[in-house]
């Protein structure tokens, strides 16, 4: 079921605004370049040998340019395996977070259940705490939760990807509930009421009536959540002791030595690691903006 809630009016062609846009373009181009310059400089550095940039500085003419660091970064850090770990964490993490958060948001904003606002506050406030606060109690807790061997080779929740996925979901729920609840309030009540008159149960109201309207918002949140879960590093670090289970962000740290770090190699690795998130953004840009459009509109 697709409801055409395209927020934009048909393009109107009112003339005068078209002219005199030169200044705006100049400004936007300048800002864009300023935003892009550091990234381009990082890519440039990743193409040059360390000895050269250490000697002549990062802002100097190239003497050697090559992609050698990219190959080295990929091979030395064992990136492919870590990349898989990150997907195992991020993909179910994003999907489950969106599913659970959308239902809570639905219940809070559409069902008029008692204590809905309080529930919303509990979730939103939980999102304000920095991750570091939760580490120690969770560590103790996870060490006490036994798991069968087929689920975790450590026999506890600690040192298993389950722990990381669970924490990722719990930690991101707050933000998603907050945004989705705000969004759902803006949806037309009439459709829901019509469905109720037709005898639709709670699940049908959620799954068949509300969720389809939220798809753009879900795609948008999905992009953000993927970026965050994929880039996150702390949960993996503190709840996994087996190095082979760590997420891809830790592969980057494998490029750092005890003392010596070749920053240009690290830059090459960073570009490789960032590629999936950039790709996801570019692919979902349409959904993203469309989704936020709906989410942000006022009810």
């Amino acid at each position: 079921m697709t409801v055409s809630t395209a927020p934009r009016p048909a393009p109107t062609r009112t003339g005068p605004a078209r002219h005199g846009r030169f200044g705006v373009h100049l400004f936007l181009t300048a800002v864009s370049l300023a935003f892009l310059a550091p990234l381009l400089l990082a890519v440039y550095a990743s193409l040059r040998p360390y000895e050269e940039t250490a000697r002549y500085g990062y802002f100097s003419l190239p003497r050697h340019l090559s992609f050698a660091y990219y190959r080295q970064a990929f091979v030395d850090s064992g990136m492919s395996r870590y990349f898989l770990n990150s997907l195992v964490i991020a993909v179910p993490g994003v999907l489950l977070t969106l599913f659970l958060a959308s239902f809570v948001a639905f219940a809070v904003s559409r069902l008029r259940i008692r204590g809905g606002t309080a529930l919303l506050m509990v979730f939103t406030a939980g999102n304000l705490l920095p991750q570091q606060v939760l580490v120690t109690p969770l560590y103790v807790l996870f060490n006490k939760v036994p798991l069968p061997y087929w689920m975790s080779d450590s026999m506890t929740l600690y040192d298993s990807l389950w722990a990381v996925i669970a924490v990722q979901i719990a930690f991101q729920l707050g933000f998603c509930v907050f945004v989705l609840a705000n969004f759902m309030r803006t949806l037309p009540r009439e459709i829901l009421e019509a469905a109720i008159v037709d005898g639709a149960g709670v699940w049908a109201q959620y799954r068949r009536v509300t969720l389809p309207l939220c798809r753009p918002a879900l795609a948008a949140l999905g992009t953000l959540q993927f970026t965050w879960m994929y880039n996150d590093f702390l949960w993996g670090l503190v709840f996994l002791s087996d190095g082979d289970k760590l997420p891809v962000t830790s592969a980057l740290n494998n490029l750092r030595g005890q003392f010596f770090t070749d920053y240009n190699l690290l830059a090459a690795g960073s570009v490789l690691v960032a590629l999936p998130t950039v790709l996801v953004f570019l692919l979902l840009q349409r959904h993203f903006i469309a989704g936020l459009t709906l989410g942000a509109s006022k009810g």
């Binding site: 880039n231 960073s270 960032a274 950039v278 953004f281």
Partner: peptide, 24 residues
């Protein structure tokens, strides 16, 4: 183009930001 460029810094991870600071 403007949207993408201006949004790009949001997706960067810790390692990149640290390196870029050092770089500049």
């Amino acid at each position: 183009f403007y949207q993408s460029t201006l949004y790009l810094p949001v997706v960067l991870s810790l390692a990149v930001v640290g390196f870029i600071a050092q770089l500049i």
